[in-house]
Design a protein around this nucleic acid. Structure first.
Length: 688
DNA sequence: ATGACCAATTGA
DNA sequence: CAATTGGTCATG
């Protein structure tokens, strides 16, 4: 019975296919004056079409005409007729014949013969799409910059043969493993390492030397940095180390033409070293030997466009896929990097304890314990405990002082004025803010008024908006240290470097200028506040920022001091005192493991209306061990009234690809059935 | 998405 | 009985 039904179905669909094919044939005959002349060889082009629909996310075959034969190559751009409209596409292959049963349509036209999508990057976009349960066309938009015809018509000047000093790389890296990493790169090896940079070092020179060592083996490199300022530093380091014209920069900064010019220099093989921000992770470097990323914990590495891939993960996928070397460097250590070390995938490239002690500044913590606050009421009002004050004064005798003050954005959240416990909404545990000083505090998430607030720790009724922000910090310090030059470096106006002469430099995290010869002292204000931020990454992020600032100080032997204003019992600050970023990160890895959080687990956040979420979960074939949390209403600021809920699913790490697969299936079915969209975010930065 | 196709429903 | 509408399917 089953067989009969099957046979009938087969007959019906065969008849339908025949009808379609003959219809297509007559249409072609009727509409075209000349008969189609196919390319003399490999007349089939396999094309990735730019359609946003999950169920159409696979290659389609088209016929190449004799005229298009030369232009249509693997990696070139074409236009094709698809579902009743003209769409863009990338050719991924030329074939002798198609495995498609029906008749093939001819390519609409060849856009350009430039092979912008190399086979390696084509494969990479596939793995990234799969890993993040997104569509390949979304990833392709991130990987290949928009075309610029004028730029494309010009040749890319080739880099000269580089003149490299074979010993300089190993010499620069001497303090770590005796320079073995760079020797292995020079010899064509592919080490994978998590590098903890020594304080007061020019990390950009380290990256440039690693690229030089890789170049000496005849291979190229990709070096990623968080932002434009770091890119400038790396740019000059690369020019110093490799000579002019050996590298290009890839970032969103310059205009489209410049960006495409750099991209073409790389895809044409004219230049083999790429430095850039997160988009550079997809650069089509020939003979890739090394991918490197500086300060991979920076949130700028999280791509804000779907499917939200993280730059570090893209580089790791790439290293995995091509077998190239991987280097993750930072002054601190991200949880993910620590996890790569503990799993044995990467080696730990840290200097010996003794060397670290020699290079690090002396770090102390002051001012946040209750007793000290009682002894020193000045600490509360001016946020500058006595010890910080005297340290600054002494340091100004020998050089500049850096004061790191949290951005005033954090000032929004209130805390108890007695014990500094963050003030939270009793309804939804969201942070409280003060709309204006005459009104009661209001929850930032649900908008509930918290009249008659009482601290849940100490019962106190007083609240304060603790952060003062950089501007008021500048004013306070100006009064306290009259006559000393004051400079500020914040979001709007960022300084890159300051000189050796005594000055106080107030900076927000991430905007710290480096000082010629290093700072005599670095002061970290309001550390408890940064730790009290909502979100799972608060401690990791705080530690990263403190190490980045503290690493700009001179060595202890040269008088370098760091004073953190906070609670000396706080483990995050103890890690700073011991200058032990790796120890801190590996403890965090353990905590994440027991809490079933990434990177030990893989996690997905689904966002949609609540009923839609229920339906979507029903469509999933969840792997064993999956936990479904929620749905819960999306925490939104009270001013934006967007309905919606989110749901979190987490699975053991080894089930990560099974999770991605079932999410892809779900998105495919949903887009085919025209069901309302569900946002899928795998291991998003904030929750992960 | 968009279009093609089929079937059922509606109106004269 | 024609015209209209709604659902399903395929997209090379």
């Amino acid at each position: 019975m089953d067989e009969d039904d099957g046979e009938q179905l087969a007959l019906i669909s065969a008849a339908k296919a025949a009808a379609r094919t003959s219809a297509a044939r007559t249409r072609v005959k009727d509409n075209s004056a000349k008969p189609f002349e196919p390319a003399p060889e490999l007349p089939v082009a396999r094309v990735l079409v730019d359609v946003p629909l999950a169920h159409l996310d696979r290659p389609f075959d088209y016929l190449v005409s004799a005229k298009q034969h030369e232009q249509v190559v693997a990696g070139s751009r074409v236009k094709v007729h698809f579902a009743g409209q003209d769409v863009d596409g990338f050719v991924v292959d030329r074939l002798a014949e198609s495995d498609h049963e029906g008749r093939l349509a001819p390519l609409r036209r060849s856009v350009s013969p430039e092979p912008v999508l190399t086979p390696e990057v084509a494969e990479l976009t596939g793995s990234v799409a799969r890993r993040y349960a997104g569509t390949r066309s979304d990833v392709l938009r991130l990987a290949v910059p928009p075309r610029h015809a004028t730029v494309e018509s010009r040749p890319s000047p080739s880099a000269d043969e580089p003149e490299l000093d074979p010993d300089s790389a190993a010499a620069w890296w001497q303090d770590y493993d005796g320079g073995a990493l760079c020797r292995r790169l020079t010899e064509g090896g592919s080490p994978r390492a998590v590098w903890t940079a020594l304080p007061a070092t020019h990390w950009e020179d380290g990256l440039a030397e690693a690229a030089a060592a890789t170049l000496a083996s005849g291979r190229g490199s990709i070096l990623c940095v968080p932002d434009g300022r770091d890119l400038e530093r790396l740019d000059s380091a690369l020019t110093r180390t490799l000579g002019a014209g050996q590298h290009v920069l890839l970032s969103a900064e310059p205009g489209r033409a410049e960006r495409y010019r750099s991209f073409l220099a790389v895809s044409r093989g004219a230049v083999r070293v790429v430095a850039g921000t997160r988009a550079a992770a997809f650069a089509p470097v020939r003979d890739l030997g090394l991918v490197a990323i500086w300060d991979d914990g920076d949130d700028l590495y999280a791509e804000p466009r779907a499917p939200y891939p993280h730059c570090r993960e893209v580089l790791l996928l790439r290293s995995h896929q091509t077998g190239c070397a991987a280097l993750l460097g930072a002054f601190a250590r991200s949880i993910e990097a620590a996890s790569l070390v503990s799993s044995g995938w990467a080696e730990d490239l840290s200097a010996a304890r003794g060397v670290v002690r020699d290079r690090a500044p002396r770090v102390s913590v002051t001012g946040a314990t209750d007793t000290e606050l009682e002894r020193d009421p000045f600490a509360q009002t001016a946020r500058l405990p006595h010890e910080a004050h005297t340290t600054i004064r002494a340091a100004l005798e020998i050089g500049p002082v850096l004061v790191q003050a949290p951005r005033s954005g954090y000032a929004e959240s209130l805390m108890c004025d007695r014990c500094r416990t963050p003030a939270r909404c009793t309804t939804c545990t969201g942070p409280l803010r003060l709309p204006n000083p005459r009104q009661p505090p209001v929850c930032r998430w649900c908008g509930t008024e918290a009249a008659g607030y009482a601290c849940r720790e100490c019962g106190g009724h007083g609240l304060r908006a603790p952060v003062v922000g950089a501007r008021r910090t500048v004013e306070e310090l100006g009064r306290a240290f009259a006559g000393v030059p004051l400079r500020s470096s914040t979001g709007e106006r960022v300084l890159t470097d300051v000189g050796r002469e005594p000055a106080i430099v107030v900076a927000t995290p991430g905007a710290e200028p480096s000082a010629d010869g290093g700072y005599a002292a670095v002061v970290l204000l309001d550390t408890w506040l940064v730790l009290a931020r909502p979100g799972l990454r608060a401690a990791e992020e705080a530690v990263r920022r403190w190490f980045n600032a503290a690493a700009l100080a001179r060595a202890q032997s040269a008088g370098g001091r760091v004073v953190a204003v906070g609670d000396p019992a706080e483990p995050a600050l103890q890690a700073l005192v011991r200058w032990d970023p790796a120890g801190f990160a590996s403890r965090e890895v353990e905590e994440r493991r027991t809490a079933h959080l990434p990177p030990a687990s893989r996690l997905v956040v689904l966002t949609a209306d609540e009923a839609v979420l229920q339906e979507a979960v029903g469509q999933l074939a969840l792997p064993a061990g999956a936990e479904v949390l929620g749905p819960t209403p999306v925490p939104v600021a009270s001013d934006q009234a967007s309905p919606g809920a989110r749901l979190i699913i987490r699975v053991p790490r080894r089930a990560g690809s099974a999770l991605s697969d079932t999410l892809l299936d779900m998105q495919g079915v949903r887009s085919a059935k025209k069901l309302s969209p569900v946002r899928v975010q795998i291991d998003p930065y904030e929750l992960a």
